[in-house]
Design a protein around this nucleic acid. Sequence first.
RNA 1: GGUGAGGUGGGUGAGUGGCUUAAACCACCGGUUUGCUAAACCGACGUACUGUAACAGGUACCGCGGGUUCGAAUCCCGCCCUCACCGCCA
Length: 424
Amino acid sequence: MLQISYIRDNKENVLKGLQKRNFKNPEIIDELIELDDQRKSTQTQLNDLQAESNRISKEIGQLFREGKKEEADKLKEQVSNSKDNMKQLEESFGTIEARMEELLLTVPNIPHSSVPAGQNEQDNEVFRAWDKDLPKLYDGAQPHWELATKYNIFDLELGTKITGAGFPLYRGKGAKLQRSLIQFFLDINTDAGYEEIMPPLLVNADTARATGQLPDKEGQMYHCERDELYLIPTAEVPVTNIYRDVILETNELPIKLTGYTPCFRREAGSYGAHVRGLNRVHQFDKVEIVRFELPENSYKALEEMVEHVAGILNKLELPFRILRLCGGDMGFTSALTFDFEVWSAAQERWLEVSSVSNFETFQSNRMKLRYRDENKKTQLAHTLNGSALALARIVAALLENNQTPEGIKIPEALQRYTGFDLIS
RNA sequence: GGUGAGGUGGGUGAGUGGCUUAAACCACCGGUUUGCUAAACCGACGUACUGUAACAGGUACCGCGGGUUCGAAUCCCGCCCUCACCGCCA
């Protein structure tokens, strides 16, 4: 959520940024500023009345102590009269604030200056292309969902039986491969200075709101109505919320966290060839990295995170490219996002496996995550996160790209985790 | 799930309707003193909004939300959470 003060001070910039995102209702910026004017004048009036009534109330107390009951009663009447007025002002103040909140929630983050204009994924900029050869498969190579059956490593139909479509069941070497990848990712992340977190997988509404899942993406989350809890769509939600309503000292920053969690996403309405196998599922495993930074350092941190993720993919020997998302394709809360896509050789398409973003103060404003600057004033910190990495599609690409007539080869870096070098 | 006790600033903790501007102590910060450290003393010490050129000033906030009252940390109602014991349980 943007701060109203930021919108006021940078109106032109905000409008330009929204245009880059193809934001459909730029007029609400003017409406917000107008509402803010009303809010201020209402508050000033209200505060004056409250101050007056506080003053008189104190006088009444004084008079009672002195036993001057009659004079006190007179003053009582005086205060009673202004009560209606105050009540009315309070009500309109509340209405104005609620309306502002409602509008502010619909305004997306302002894109960074490097974000290209564009409508959709077609317009994303290839930030780093894959400049080596793409793997060539032998005749008879298969997409991962067929390999799954051939080697009995995961079973979508069993998942469907137990739960429903999109809940894969991994078994044997497939299950071990999952566990190995998780451990491999966590080890790399902690070696790079990220503290490992194992958070709750269900969160309350306050938490979901702070990172922007509510109300923007309400339909995306599974919801336990009886207990009013949500299943997390990503570790970003519980991990980032560790610092909700916290004021940090400057020297506590940066904070680097990593966490493995299963992720649950309803992905309503997506069926078809594009989403076969592990390409899009309702439950998948992901290791996330999250950072809290001083504003002046956050873009350097973003670069570091991009290099970090690229390093992991290199270790797995997977062909990948990096995209800089255009204004139209970027997430609601992000100021700059790099997507990582790995090459899926049997499907002959790129699969998104990581998304690394700087949210600047968009999340921290909603979360009230602040730090004290050198003048002891509180400032919003910057938040960033990225997948390092999301498993299901990595697995899909690994299985497809590494298949040979003898079986599926495990990348060398992973072998000490799996304990085997071939799935056959 | 049942019963009971609680929730006050960074921490401990006082406060049963107005002399509270939330006491006191501790911690942190600034200063005085000092060769240095410590101690002692003095001062400042929350968040948000508002306001100002900047100060000043104003309002709200004592778990959260309502209510009573001229006036609520204090009284009333609802909810949340913590702790203890009981029940259930990996």
